[in-house]
Design a protein around this nucleic acid. Structure first.
Lengths: 367, 367
DNA sequence: CGCGAGTGAGAGAGCGCTCTCCGAGCATCG
DNA sequence: CGATGCTCGGAGAGCGCTCTCTCACTCGCG
């Protein structure tokens, strides 16, 4: 009775490591075995109680939970996932096609609220579900391969994918490996994979309608990078809406979604078309830059030139004057993507389906 | 020879799940065993080669790597960490003292570039080190307990902690459990835990010096929340610097680090002290708000009133006029915190040490 | 020529958990 | 009253890996 195990010794001081002042650290966390011993049942029963499978006698049930509380038991995820091949974890993967590596681009990306809003949306669904989130950046092909390998081992159960580069191969790889994944944003090349997106074209149409309603006659566009789907769609939506209202032609200058590029593009546009009275900008950051250029050119916004942005990012509220913009419900989209992912993890047989969110025009002062 | 194992069967089609069109998915990823068999050595040897421990005959070495490539082997993290009690993972923990739960606060937090900049800094160190990142939000006491339990199991090897609430108990819990952790930002109550921070007091002094240099005579401050260390330190630094220059008294209005609170505080301050000619604002977001209030009150910035912010966040560049501000090198701080953490994980005996970064004044147009 | 030291590879015991079998106990029914 | 089915707990076999222990073999030195 004594000596060997049984009275799960709080005593044994053991080594206690070097950390040591006053740390309690009974040097190993309790295991299922410990709980079982204390409750006087088998490991299997404790496991059943904890995972709530099958009927267990209510009395035993109580005894087991008491033992869990008493020991402060927490399941070992590694051990569990080794056998279940489930991790209880979802990966948020940011995939950048080329190896930018120690690259200023990524820090710019993280500093952009875009990233945080997605994280917030994902978390809002994951947390109540008790699922963990891991963050992965992949740049190189090797990193992509490793990621897929990890996933097949069940290191994570599924992927919310933020693909930053139009010809990213990762979506295809994931599909091929049979890994549950949902994209935030339409993939550049069609793939058998679910995604969420905002109706970019409809959003652009909203902007056009608003500018025309205000009475704008000479409307231009500051577009985004040509190879990005969101940017393409906003352009297409703009063009079609303009055409519908009889404006087959309009001035256009491209930018790359940064504030500086917006400022530069606005200057170019203004130089060529000084008589513009309305402008749609493909995202808020560029719109902010455009506002600066307009201000410097002595144009009053919105009186002389009305400006509509896209995204309703924090930049929109910060702008002077605050930006009228098309709301991009990123948090909701990320949350929905996560819900879809969770459903798909539960049942890989689910059909591929996408959800497109309706954009809403947020009217502030710039138009 | 046939039948049982040996020729690591590519054949066996097996179930192939429901996902199935054309997916290759040889239904289980290769294990060490598979690699060993193909290389004609024991599991132990493959393990040694992969982990680069001890001398292994160069020939075997090559054979093993060839087999690894051929099979596309990727180690199973769960299995590995089960035995090593190391996860190769670091947790970025955002600890909010009370259970805000489905709370607008967190989404505000994530949307703030602060979060993303920290993630970027952490990642920049973790990625080259081949360490994973998991994101954890803890609100309730139960969540904190679970987190500590997970960590003791080695679910993550250490913690970079973002503590949002002054009387958060988590730092103490981590210390007590002997878990490697580094804080970003000085803890509100001293604890035996390493942290990184920016010299907030010195930063405030920089701002004061700049305002005085410009010839400002009547300088006020828009301070942050009283219970936040960073905010306290900026206030203290401001007060002391002012005192050193013979300004024992100065007008002050508190805000809570949001843009709106800055705008409101500025209005109050202006109402009481219409003759202000310089102002230090405890963060850029509030400064942005202050700029709006100043503009509405018809004050020209910087001619009539000079404004200095704090953080050099993206809001500073976006402001009209662009904000002169004290740079808070968050990415660098987060990166350093991560390096410290990694070192500490390697050697828990390391003494607790903190690194304080020097702030730099970034002069733009507002002062 | 013999023996200890040194080197490199294999055998095998777990890490903590889940889950499939089994079997004991009990109720139900012919 | 015996056969049948059902419920519920235990035994034990792994999941894929690491790492200690052991052992075969080589080399150097007395």
């Amino acid at each position: 009775m004594a000596e060997l195990s049984q009275t799960d010794d709080l005593s044994r001081p053991e080594e206690l490591g070097r950390g040591g002042d006053g740390s309690i650290a009974r040097d190993r966390p309790p295991t299922l075995e410990d709980v079982a011993r204390m409750a006087g049942v088998s490991r299997a029963t404790v496991s059943r109680v904890i995972n709530g499978v099958r009927n267990v006698d209510p009395d035993l049930h109580a005894v087991v939970w008491a033992a869990v509380d008493a020991t402060g038991y927490v399941p070992n995820r590694a051990a569990r996932s080794l056998v279940t091949r489930r991790a209880g974890t979802v990966a948020l993967v940011v995939s950048d096609s080329e190896e930018h590596d120690d690259d200023p681009f990524l820090s710019r990306f993280f500093a952009d609220p875009f990233f945080g809003r997605v994280v917030g949306g994902v978390m809002s669904v994951l947390r109540p579900a008790g699922v963990q989130l891991t963050l992965q950046l992949v740049g190189s092909a090797a990193a992509r391969a490793r990621l897929v390998g990890d996933l097949r081992h069940g290191h994570a159960d599924g992927v919310v994918l933020l693909s930053l580069h139009p010809d990213d191969t990762l979506p295809a790889l994931l599909v091929e490996a049979g890994i549950a994944a949902v994209l935030v944003g339409r993939p550049a090349r069609p793939a058998l994979i679910s995604y969420v997106d905002v109706a970019n074209e409809a959003g652009a149409a909203l902007a056009v309608a608003h500018l025309l309603d205000r009475g704008c006659q000479r409307i231009g566009i500051l577009s985004g990078p040509e190879n990005v789907p969101a940017s393409q769609d906003r352009m297409t939506g703009f063009r079609q809406a303009m055409a519908r209202h009889g404006h087959a032609w309009f001035p256009c200058e491209p930018g790359n979604f940064t504030r500086d590029s917006g400022e530069a593009a606005m200057r170019r546009l203004l130089a060529q078309h000084p008589d513009l009275d309305g402008i749609f900008v493909a995202n808020d950051l560029m719109a902010q830059g455009a506002l600066v250029a307009l201000h410097e050119a002595g144009r009053r916004v919105p009186d002389q030139v009305a400006v509509v942005g896209f995204d309703d990012s924090s930049a929109a509220q910060a702008a002077q004057p605050p930006l009228t913009t098309v709301r991009h419900p990123l948090e909701d989209m990320a949350a929905e993507a996560t819900r879809m992912l969770l459903a798909r993890i539960d049942d890989l047989g689910l059909r591929v389906a996408s959800v497109i969110f309706d954009p809403v025009l947020v009217v502030r002062r710039s138009a």
